[in-house]
Design a protein around this nucleic acid. Sequence first.
DNA 1: GGATAATTTGACCGATTGGTAAACATTACA
DNA 2: TGTAATGTTTACCAATCGGTCAAATTATCC
Lengths: 214, 214
Amino acid sequence: MAIPRAAKTQRRTRIQEEKEEQILEAALDVFSVHGFRGSTIDQIAEVAGMSKPNLLYYFRTKEAMHRALIDRVLFTWLEPLRAFNAGGDPESEIRSYIRRKLEMARDFPRESRLFANEMLQGAPHVEEELRGPLKSLVDEKAEVIRAWAKSGKIAKCDPYHLIFSIWSTTQHYADFDVQVRAVLGQEHSGEGRFEDAARYLEKLFVDGLSIRRV
Amino acid sequence: MAIPRAAKTQRRTRIQEEKEEQILEAALDVFSVHGFRGSTIDQIAEVAGMSKPNLLYYFRTKEAMHRALIDRVLFTWLEPLRAFNAGGDPESEIRSYIRRKLEMARDFPRESRLFANEMLQGAPHVEEELRGPLKSLVDEKAEVIRAWAKSGKIAKCDPYHLIFSIWSTTQHYADFDVQVRAVLGQEHSGEGRFEDAARYLEKLFVDGLSIRRV
DNA sequence: GGATAATTTGACCGATTGGTAAACATTACA
DNA sequence: TGTAATGTTTACCAATCGGTCAAATTATCC
């Protein structure tokens, strides 16, 4: 008889890896739509295609599952900002940051919604990460932008609000997808809307920032 | 013995108005944070300061309560877009639309979050309103913007994505408030952040749109 | 003030919630 | 191949869920 939940073992079984993957995938489906409190273990178990006790064998509690999911997703989610390069050309850096964020919204909408749900609820599970690692990363990148502004490479503007506006405009296409589709109508709801959005947003930001062309 | 739920009476009692107001206020508190499924009647009743059966005397079901709340808030929420004036000067119209939306985010963050929650969940309760009244209103305003672009008053750009970007950037300060505060730190988390945001966003949009000054 | 309608409450219901216990089945490994 | 560890399932639990009911209380109006 094992002390279960894979606590006794030193390294993880093949089955453990597979099943945990399966569970987190299902959990992402459910949590991203209904938020933490609105999601049920039964529902996640059903999506994952396993029984509830079986799921609870891998994650002791609903919170543990959510925690694991957040931890895994958080790193990936910040990748574009991490890639934001101080040494690069301001215009192309901002353009490609917008592109990357928009690609994330297109390719990982569930991840975007998972965080959006957390934010709406006041970030009860990730507030530390916001005040710690996230703030540090943003502070660092804001400093870069501030330097660009100071040296006249881009217009003087608040770098924090600039970052917020890139986040919000791009993530909007994931978080408010249903609204975007409804407003655009069937004709323009295809995948082409991301290309349209990219064109519009790049123009908005670049011209808006009066970036000096090289 | 009354056939309850105020169905028999022709006009509403003073008590009915007061209590329904009280309930919707509490419902807004709860639904805006936890979404529909994540909210419980008990919790709303507690916030409203009344017993659960008493609350259910005024709204037969959780859905009825949510419905009533959505209906009331939807009208107010679209007011700024309705006020968007075709006859006005493009620059000042866009500026004041941004201002108004930002004021809404500041003064009615719960309403913003209520809708955001609905959107994240795929708009199960308001999809009709999105495809109907909302789309119509946006279509109308988009036509105005398109005309501005055609006549060279503003840069050529997709009017729908322009509207999306104003929505997302302004509502971000309500929906992602906790993140904004965390990133800005204590020093810049005061109410002044809305003024900073307004300044930044107006500059972003006006210059970005190459609006011809009058 | 009394009748009548409107409001409020406590006790309760079946379904669902997050989670457990233990028997059972499977896998890995010597 | 045997056996110990790992994985899965059935049956179950107490708490909470949305919602009902009838009795008790309060407001309204003649």
